[in-house]
Structure formats: C-alpha cells, structure tokens
Write a protein that binds this DNA or RNA. Structure first.
Lengths: 79, 79
DNA sequence: ATGTGACTCAAAGTCCGTG
DNA sequence: ACACGGACTTTGAGTCACA
C-alpha cells in the first residue's frame, strides 16, 4: 500500500477522484505505468491514487491532468 | 513563510489558486480568520494558501470550498 | 486582521521489490 | 499491466509568536 493514512483513509472524495482518473485513463487506452511516466510520478504512487489512497496535492493533480491531456476541473467534474 | 518548498516555490497554479480563493472570500466579505475557522484550518495556514505558498491537497481544497460554500471546481475555474 | 519565520510530525511521494 | 508491501526521503499539515 501507499501507506494507510488514518486521517484520510477511504475518504469519499479521494475514492471518487481515483475512480474518475482511472476512468479517464482507461478511456484513452493507457496503462497506469505510461500515465505515471508521462506525469513524472511513481507508478506505485499513481496506482494508489486511483485506489483513493492518496490525498493528492494540487501540483500532482496538474501533472496527472496534463498526462491525460485534460484540465484539473475535469478530474472533479463530468463535462 | 510556511516553508519554502523547492518543488512548488512560486508555482503559477498555486499563485492562481490563492488569488482565486482570496477573491471568492473577499467577494463574500469574509476575513481570513473566519474562513479559516469555518474550514477547520489554522488562520496562518489559510493565509499562506491565499499567498500561493502551499501545495494544498484535495482534502483541504474540499474544506476550503465548503467554508466558502462553493465547489472544488469553482476554485480552479471561473463559472 | 494579516504576513512571516521557526518549528514539529504525520503524510506525501520515491524506489526497491513481490505475486 | 496491476496490486501491494517495506524502507526510505521530502514536504504538506498544522501551530505559535511576533511584527
């Protein structure tokens, strides 16, 4: 695991964010590894994000959005 | 400062986010202190966010959005 | 009412590996 | 290609005192 963080463990907003990211990634036929690489994040970390295990900070949101060729808001809201 | 983090020092996206938060807060005639209190964050920390000094994570974005009675996406995009 | 420096500490995030 | 884990370093979270 990316570390069981008691403070945000299973926080709905993170779960939702992770699902959304996975959805967007899969809709482009990309692997976790390729997106992780493209965004400059660790593959293991990125996997954890999709599983809602990380309280991702803004700069990483941006990196992920960029790697998926979308905007940050698209990570939170369906167009 | 709340700590000069080399990784995000003066990052445009954080500066922009901070300005946006300040704008939204002031448009409601609220003080940093009241919003900080409402969001459960420290006044000093919240001030730093408005100055773009913090690479805020999702959970805190949510708290701030809630205290301002808006959505997370509104923090990134003008409606 | 706000900005800032100094500080602690838990968590963010990396790097190595496994099935 | 992905989930998961251990051990590790860096940084975000949160608080305080003072200008």
């Amino acid at each position: 695991m990316a570390k069981p963080s008691p403070t945000h463990a299973g926080n709905p907003i993170l779960i939702k964010l992770g699902k959304r990211i996975r959805q967007l990634r899969e809709s482009q036929g990309l692997s976790q590894e390729s997106v992780a690489l493209a965004s400059g994040l660790d593959r293991s970390y990125f996997g954890g994000v999709e599983r809602g295990e990380h309280n991702v900070a803004v700069i990483n949101l941006e990196k992920i959005a960029l790697a998926l060729d979308i905007k940050i808001v698209d990570l939170f809201e369906r167009k």
